[in-house]
Computed example of a mutant assay.
Amino acid sequence: MTDMVGQEPQYEVFADEFLDHARDGLYNAHCDRPACLDLLGDVAGRRVLDVACGPGLYAAELVARGATVIGLDHSPRMVELAGHRVPAGEFRVHDLADPLDWVPDASVDLVLFALALEYVDDRVSLFRELRRVLRPGGALVFSRMHPTGDWLRHGGNYFDERIVEEVWSKGWRVRYWLAPLEQTCEELRAAGFLIERLVEPRPRPEAAAIDREGYERLSREPTGFLAIRAVPDPRP
């Protein structure tokens, strides 16, 4: 196995299925999405860059709350779905291995980067790009799979950064990085960010009616996600 996830847009082959899954599903709609939106705070009148925007579920919420949204995703089908869902947004296909050279310096108030960090090979370079496009006083909010949950599923050395391949319950085959929390914190530091808040999202109470077993598990075990709000380090 190589030491890169690579540049294939993995979600392209199941983009429509993912939309159906994430629209109202326990993990996305009742755990990660509300946590990220809470960390973003009041977005009315703000310009938000939605990185790895997927089918536009977060973007729709942001626009409904008064934000202007620019979105990007590696999957052309995801970008198409996002455009249909959020006509007021501006979306384009972009590989996160490439610089965001179409986004000017200090041009967005907030960056949202939900559940896609694991698919990026050079995360420090990407974080630096996200810091570059943020205006003074801006913030980055991102989420990732909980590293403890990853370790419980895959075993081995928790501190060993490595790539795994996994087939999820719907038959979706994915390839992504496992990395300890320490590594993510160090990558943020190297890119010039300070962590302002870190949360371990638990599902909202109404999610119990969707999946009681999953709701109870996510409410007591670190098998879901982490969400972090980071701000540019003002020190020289």
Rank of each mutant, 00 (worst) to 15 (best):
T2H: 14
M4S: 15
V5T: 03
E8D: 11
Q10Y: 00
Y11N: 14
A15K: 06
E17R: 15
L19C: 12
D20R: 15
D20N: 14
H21G: 12
H21P: 10
D24L: 08
D24A: 09
D24G: 10
A29Y: 02
D32S: 15
D32C: 12
A35E: 06
A35H: 02
C36K: 05
C36Q: 12
L39S: 06
L40I: 01
G41F: 04
G45Y: 05
R47V: 10
R47M: 08
P55L: 14
G56L: 09
G56K: 08
Y58F: 15
R65P: 01
V69M: 05
I70V: 15
L72I: 14
D73E: 03
H74K: 10
M78W: 01
L81P: 06
H84L: 15
R85L: 13
V86M: 00
A88G: 12
G89S: 00
E90D: 12
V93L: 01
D95P: 08
L100E: 06
S107G: 11
S107F: 11
A114G: 04
E118T: 05
Y119P: 00
V120L: 08
V120I: 14
V120F: 07
S125C: 06
F127A: 02
F127E: 01
V133C: 08
V133G: 06
V133R: 03
R135I: 06
P136E: 07
P136F: 01
T148S: 12
G149H: 04
D150W: 10
W151I: 00
D160F: 11
R162Y: 11
I163W: 04
V167D: 11
V167K: 13
W168F: 12
S169Q: 14
K170F: 14
W172H: 13
W172L: 09
V174R: 12
R175S: 03
A179P: 01
L181K: 08
E182N: 11
T184E: 02
E187R: 00
F193M: 04
L194C: 13
I195N: 03
R197E: 15
R197S: 15
E200P: 02
R204P: 05
A208S: 07
E213D: 13
R217G: 02
L218N: 08
R220G: 04
E221M: 07
L226S: 02
A230C: 00
